[in-house]
Amino acid sequence: MVAGWFTHDSGEEDFRLLGTRCTACFSVFFPREDSFCRNPGCGGGELTEVPLSRRGRVWSYTDGRYRPPAPYVSDPETEWEPYTLLAVELAAERMVVLGQAVPGVSVADLTVGMEVEAVPGVLNEDAGTVWTTWHWRPVEEAR
């Protein structure tokens, strides 16, 4: 897990990506920014942590059909399983955030404009360590 990028101690209903907001220009950033305002037109202000919208709309999507090269995690001894990658425009922030779809959702299940929500997910498991992340799940599939 990348510390500070999302909540991790709460249940699925409370799961949120975490960003930062500049108090001077109100720009929101994800991944978070803790040093300076990334808005080139801003003189800078204090950056505060903000939970981002849980839901958004599919802006674009594709599938990953190749094994990534080193240094990415990819065990050549295991069978490669394709994954679905989404670009999602968050509802309130009007920013696009990338992430994988929940397991079982393929590009055939998606359409541009479809509503999705951020849920906790697993990126990788290695020697007893679980690397957590977020996944996007179609809202129609929820509950």
Rank of each mutant, 00 (worst) to 15 (best):
E117R: 11
T62E: 10
A142M: 09
G41Y: 08
S106E: 13
P138L: 01
W59Q: 01
T132K: 07
D109G: 14
E46W: 03
A127W: 08
V107T: 15
R65D: 12
P82G: 13
N39M: 05
L85P: 00
Y72D: 14
P82V: 05
M95A: 10
L52K: 00
H135Q: 08
R65M: 13
V139N: 01
P120V: 07
G45T: 08
V130E: 06
E81N: 05
A142C: 09
Y61V: 03
V97T: 02
R54K: 05
S35M: 07
A108E: 15
A127C: 09
G19A: 07
R94N: 14
D109M: 12
A91Y: 03
G56R: 00
V122W: 03
R38Y: 02
A24T: 09
T111M: 08
S106V: 09
C37P: 02
T20C: 04
A142P: 11
E33C: 11
P103F: 10
F6L: 00
E81P: 04
W136L: 01
C37A: 03
D9W: 02
G45Q: 07
G99M: 01
S10Q: 12
L98H: 14
V28H: 03
R32S: 12
C42R: 11
D34Y: 13
L123F: 12
P71K: 08
R94A: 10
P68S: 11
G104E: 15
M114K: 12
T84G: 07
E115A: 15
S74A: 15
R67D: 14
V97H: 00
R143S: 04
L18C: 04
R65G: 09
V116F: 04
R137E: 01
W59Y: 13
V88K: 02
Y61Q: 06
R67H: 06
R67A: 15
E89G: 09
S106G: 15
F29D: 06
G99C: 02
E12A: 00
D34T: 15
G64E: 14
W59K: 03
H135P: 00
A87I: 07
V58H: 06
F36D: 12
V139Y: 00
A24L: 11
V116S: 05
G44N: 12
W80K: 02
L47M: 13
M1A: 09
R21A: 05
F36G: 05
E140T: 03
R54C: 01
P68Y: 15
V50D: 00
L86I: 07
P120H: 08
P51S: 05
D75C: 10
L47T: 09
T7C: 04
S10H: 11
T20V: 04
P71V: 12
R143Q: 04
T23I: 02
D63M: 10
T7G: 00
V73K: 14
F26R: 14
P71I: 13
Y83N: 09
A108S: 14
E81H: 08
E46Q: 08
R38N: 03
V96K: 01
A142R: 14
E140Y: 01
P69C: 02
P69W: 12
F36S: 13
V88C: 06
S74E: 13
V105W: 12
Y61N: 02
G113D: 12
Y83E: 11
E140M: 03
S74I: 06
E49K: 14
N124A: 15
